[in-house]
């Protein structure tokens, strides 16, 4: 059996408020295999997004270790984690996070351009084709519907060919029909590229399509 691509060991996250400290995650340990798709589910405020942020190296835990591929990102500083994210990680967000002043094509090409990818524009065009937006390349985000914007975000995430894709409520801002179409597209692209997918969701339908589900409640892993 190959080594897991993500390993988290006894993770905890505590935040200090004015008069006491608040534990958001406690003693969470997980292993995720390469190519696996995993849904993190649980009620609001359970700590799902916090876990996602920690696993993606966007935040640092108060205790425990996280390995992405062979990198122990808990030992790294922000610059080190940034290098790991650049190498391995892609994102899809609930609020799409498209840059308003960039066209669809530019939005998709931007992360590749930042990595110095010479074929950035061609690949962006190719992936926008895959998500069915070949005709909307030069449209700005505010000229696109919510579903279209999330498809642009999917194209942006997959065009970079990340090893691991983190999706935070990818359909949370969409109606159920549009959300269904977007999740179809997400799993289709995921299958094509063999990416490891970790998604946070409220929607059972979306969670059910994943290989595995983790339930979090009050900062603790259930089951």
């Amino acid at each position: 059996m190959p080594a897991p691509i993500i390993r988290a060991h006894q993770l905890s996250k505590t935040v200090r408020t004015a008069d006491h400290s608040l534990s958001i995650l406690e003693d969470v340990s997980i292993e995720i295999q390469a190519g696996e798709s995993l849904a993190i589910v649980g009620p609001s405020g359970a700590g799902k997004s916090t876990l996602l942020g920690l696993l993606a190296g966007l935040d640092t835990p108060t205790g425990g270790q996280i390995y992405l591929a062979d990198y122990n990102i808990t030992e790294m500083d922000e610059e080190g984690r940034a290098r790991v994210r650049a190498e391995l990680v892609g994102f899809v967000f609930q609020t799409f996070q498209l840059l308003e002043s960039l066209t669809a094509l530019e939005n998709v090409a931007l992360p590749m351009e930042l990595q110095g990818e010479p074929e950035a524009t061609d690949r962006a065009r190719e992936f926008l084709g895959k998500v069915g937006l070949a005709e909307r390349l030069s449209h700005y985000p505010k000229q696109l519907s919510g579903g279209e914007q999330q498809r642009v975000a999917l194209a942006r995430a997959f065009a970079c060919q990340p090893k691991i894709l983190f999706a935070d409520e990818p359909t949370g801002n969409l109606d159920s029909i549009t959300g269904g179409k977007v999740s179809d597209l997400l799993f289709e692209l995921n299958q094509q590229s063999g990416t490891t997918l970790i998604l946070v969701t409220h929607e059972q339908r979306l969670a059910d399509r994943c290989d595995r589900q983790l339930v979090i409640d009050s900062g603790h892993l259930q089951n």
């Binding site: 922000e78 610059e79 940034a82 290098r83 790991v84 994210r85 990680v89 930042l114 990595q115």
Partner: peptide
């Protein structure tokens, strides 16, 4: 304030502070 989102996104993609 307009650049804030752009920078956060870039950093999530692994662009270093430097």
């Amino acid at each position: 304030s307009r650049l804030t989102d752009q920078v956060a996104l870039m950093k999530a993609w692994g662009v270093s502070s430097n």
